[in-house]
Computed example of a mutant assay.
Amino acid sequence: MRTARHPELDEMTLVLVMAALSDPIRVGLVRVLADGEERGWGQLRAPVAKSTLSHHLRVLRDAGITRTRQEGTRCYVTLRREDLDERFPGLLDVVLTAAHADNIGNRVTLAD
């Protein structure tokens, strides 16, 4: 399997980050990952097909919002909170606060 490419800090653009955050499922994934824990892809539950979930995770990774780590055949994802806060100070907090207030992405959960 190939190693996922993650954009460097200076490659992260506001347009790509905002585009990635324009989908409720992706916002929900960010909300779940906002606790700072690394999660296996199999732990993430969303009302979409597995292939669609994989697409959403790739969009977040390509925008620089998440980091994916592969271990054997399993993939794990974390939120790049420090990088986002350095590149776009306060943006993630505003997005998470608004998403919580408006219940955006609340259908994305963790497996029991």
Rank of each mutant, 00 (worst) to 15 (best):
A99R: 04
V59N: 02
H100W: 12
M1Q: 13
A20D: 08
V95C: 09
L33M: 10
E86R: 15
G42W: 11
A49T: 11
L60S: 03
M1I: 09
R67I: 04
W41K: 00
L60K: 03
H55Q: 09
T73Y: 05
F88Y: 04
R87T: 12
R80A: 12
R5T: 12
D23I: 08
R80T: 05
M12D: 08
G105Q: 07
V108G: 02
E82M: 09
G28K: 06
L57F: 04
D112S: 15
L110W: 13
H55N: 09
R2E: 09
P7I: 05
L79V: 06
V32I: 14
A20H: 06
R74A: 15
T13D: 07
S54N: 11
V59I: 14
R107N: 09
R26N: 07
R107D: 11
V17G: 00
I25S: 01
W41G: 01
L92H: 08
L33Q: 01
E86D: 09
R58C: 00
L29C: 03
A49V: 12
T13F: 02
S22Q: 09
Y76I: 07
T66Y: 06
I65N: 06
G36I: 07
L14F: 13
R87F: 08
H100D: 15
A98V: 15
Q43N: 07
R69F: 03
L9A: 02
R58H: 07
R87S: 06
P7W: 01
L29S: 05
E11M: 04
C75I: 00
A19K: 04
R26G: 03
L21V: 03
L92G: 06
G90C: 12
T13R: 00
V32C: 10
R45P: 04
